[in-house]
């Protein structure tokens, strides 16, 4: 069986709640896309509406550095 690859995983650990649906965010499958590249990740996702949460540390850290690397490709 093929092992699914994830570039990054964040578990919300019950600390985040979707205000629209009133449920807790869960670790769920998401995808970052930039300049025709896609990266499967696991992020806090609302199980009802599918809201994907990108925490500040991730946005300013890993995401920003991958953005810069792809921009210079």
């Amino acid at each position: 069986m093929a092992i699914e690859k994830n570039y990054y995983t964040i578990d919300p650990e019950g600390k985040l709640q979707c205000m629209k649906c009133g449920v807790l965010l869960e670790k769920g499958k998401a995808k970052f896309m930039y300049l025709d590249n896609g990266f499967p990740v696991e992020l806090p996702v609302c199980p009802v509406c599918g809201f994907v949460y990108v925490p500040e540390e991730l946005a300013l850290g890993k995401v920003a550095s991958v953005e810069r690397a792809l921009e210079d490709k």
């Binding site: 769920g28 970052f32 896309m33 599918g50 994907v52 500040e56 946005a59 995401v63 953005e67």
Partner: peptide, 26 residues
């Protein structure tokens, strides 16, 4: 990042951005 002070009033505590688009994956 904000606090909802009332129905029509909010206080912004922080802001950040990224260029990558993020979507839910099936």
């Amino acid at each position: 990042k904000f606090i909802r002070e009332s129905e029509n009033s909010y206080t912004v505590h922080g802001a950040y951005s990224h260029r990558m688009n993020v979507v839910k994956r099936q």
